[in-house]
Design a protein around this nucleic acid. Structure first.
Lengths: 180, 180
DNA sequence: GACGATCGTTCCGTTTACGGAACGAACCAT
DNA sequence: ATGGTTCGTTCCGTAAACGGAACGATCGTC
């Protein structure tokens, strides 16, 4: 079972070659074996956290640069196809009557992202931190500047876009009443 | 050999206990052994990337929520009376079993804000957007840079402060189980 | 062409992370 | 008390990640 497809290997190799250093040199400066680094880049090993820290440190990048999100966390919820919105699922809270999903959202400028209606009763709550966000029901979107907070019912088609040239950063909290 | 001080163990245990699930249950749902999870939380093991993904997936959090940058900066801060934290209450959600409060928080640099313990079971969840925030239990605070997300149990004394000269902006979500 | 250096991969013995099972402790029922 | 359940830790055999040392390939340099 190859199992997980995190593709750390190719990302790591790209980072290394972008710096123009050899596998041997990186292994030496990271204090790990060449065999380990080779296997890591080829994807034939399942590295240890300690190994990852050693490599990330030697490359001078945060560990998160190596272990960027893989395929996708469980989060079926809000990830809409298209390039305008990317979201990271941070926490999920399960209540008897509802599910809360807390996400961090980035909206790129110049594109209007359409999202199909969610189940009845679903509400979305957005707090903007950077850029100016224009979001909400497709026929009556709301606008929020940094520090402002808007929310709407998500059971109708809704959109995400920015106002102005800058991308928008926001917290998105989705409340979904439990089905049945 | 303490060697690396990533402190994944305590962070993981906090995340797990914030959800009220047992070690056995989490190990089962993550498809890993209890021994593995126990050793991970105790810090006696050097986990494999595959193990980390399994645990993060079962918790419903991104991997980066577990492997935040290690090396807590010393951050000897001066405690000056006065409000370091200003917060705006944005939304309140009432569930049969819990209350959720969504706030926007601003933390000024140079001051450590102490907060008394809340009721048992209260958890706080913070997403940082600007500055570097140092917050959490007074005896074991966590550090989060922009884009990162941390959470902790708030039934012990906890603190908020910044790392570095800039003020920190963050979303704060407080979950309070209903008293019964 | 021969040589030395370095490249990335493979081989292999050692170390250790893995999960199943056993453990004592705590809890709840009868 | 007693049996049954679940808790988190420890024990232990197995699987695999680790680094050192080979290996062939690819270079410049003489």
């Amino acid at each position: 079972m190859h199992g997980r497809e995190t593709d750390i290997g190719s990302r790591l190799r790209r980072l290394r070659e972008a710096r123009g250093i050899s596998l041997s040199a990186l292994a030496r400066s990271a204090g790990i074996g060449k065999a380990t680094l080779s296997g890591l880049e080829l994807g034939t090993r399942n590295p240890t956290l300690e190994t990852l820290y050693a490599v990330a440190g030697a490359l001078g990048v945060p560990l998160t640069a190596l272990v960027l999100e893989p395929g996708a966390p469980p989060a079926e919820a809000v990830h809409v196809p298209g390039a305008a919105v990317t979201a990271t699922l941070l926490e999920v809270f399960e209540e008897p009557t509802a599910t809360y999903e807390l996400l961090r959202m980035r909206v790129r400028p110049g594109i209007v992202q359409h999202s199909p209606p969610h189940a009845p009763g679903v509400t979305e709550h957005v707090t903007v931190y950077a850029g100016v966000l224009r979001a909400g029901p497709a026929d009556a979107p709301l606008v929020a500047a940094p520090g402002e907070h808007i929310s709407w019912q998500a059971d109708v088609p809704h959109i995400y876009s920015t106002v102005g040239p800058d991308e928008a950063l926001a917290t998105l909290l989705i409340r979904s009443p439990r089905q049945g």
